[in-house]
Design a protein around this nucleic acid. Structure first.
Lengths: 128, 128
DNA sequence: TTCCATGCAAACAATTTGCAGCAGT
DNA sequence: ACTGCTGCAAATTGTTTGCATGGAA
């Protein structure tokens, strides 16, 4: 992959913003920094960076995909009220593929695991 | 929720077809049975049925959501080659929310967990 | 000078919605 | 009658793509 200024900016943005931004958020975040980039380019670069392992894609169920500059193996917890994303270390959990393997004849190699809950901010905010 | 013929047909279709169909598949499946129903109605009814717990929604990462008439607590494994979905009993796995809770201040109540792998049919089909 | 990258707009897929009419209780 | 259900088409949302141009090696 040859060098590209825009791609570097996209990667830097996701890395320095620990908000697990969506493509749209990366786009408007960069525009706010006076970076002239198109949404298509943001999508293309996010896909390439995720493909090459420089970013991690968080496929949230129903909603825009999010991206994470922390590529260490870890999982995510999403607040069902405000959408905030927090990290959960992957080694906190046992090897789920190995456990599930005995229940199917599929050769399981990976999991998509997202926790859902309510973050402390939202809990304090609205007590309903 | 008052009775509706179309909703009953949608529910029956998902229950009797163990293929974990998408909304589109439910739609064309019903049309093939000479049921006059619109795609919008299929979507509306699938959402209501999932909302009321009569169906389980399988939010596949990037792709159409699938629906499952088996509402017993269980998880899914998706073949990355042919898209086939198999079931994994939930009690095969430990209580992940409880384990992850100690790593975040979110109040975790649920998980979205999908296994990815290659089914035996695809493994035998193409040895590459 | 050969690719890959980019911007723009159009295309796309999955899903939802507005509205008028119809059906269930 | 009242309210929820349906069909249809249009609107939305998230994302990808075609094409002409610009930039990196």
């Amino acid at each position: 992959m040859i060098y590209s200024k825009k791609r570097e900016l996209v990667l830097d943005y996701v890395r320095t913003n620990c908000t697990h931004p969506t493509a749209e958020e990366v786009y408007s975040g960069l525009r706010a920094l006076d970076v002239n980039v198109s949404l298509a380019t943001v999508y293309r670069n996010l896909n390439q960076l995720a493909e090459s392992g420089l970013l991690q894609r968080i496929a949230t169920p129903s909603g825009a995909d999010r991206f994470d500059g922390n590529i260490a193996q870890h999982l995510h917890a999403i607040c069902t009220r405000c959408g905030r994303v927090e990290d959960i270390p992957r080694n906190a959990l046992p090897d789920l593929c190995k456990i599930a393997s005995s229940y199917t004849d599929m050769e399981l190699s990976d999991i998509t695991l997202v926790f859902h809950g309510v973050c402390s901010v939202c809990r304090n905010h609205t007590k309903n």
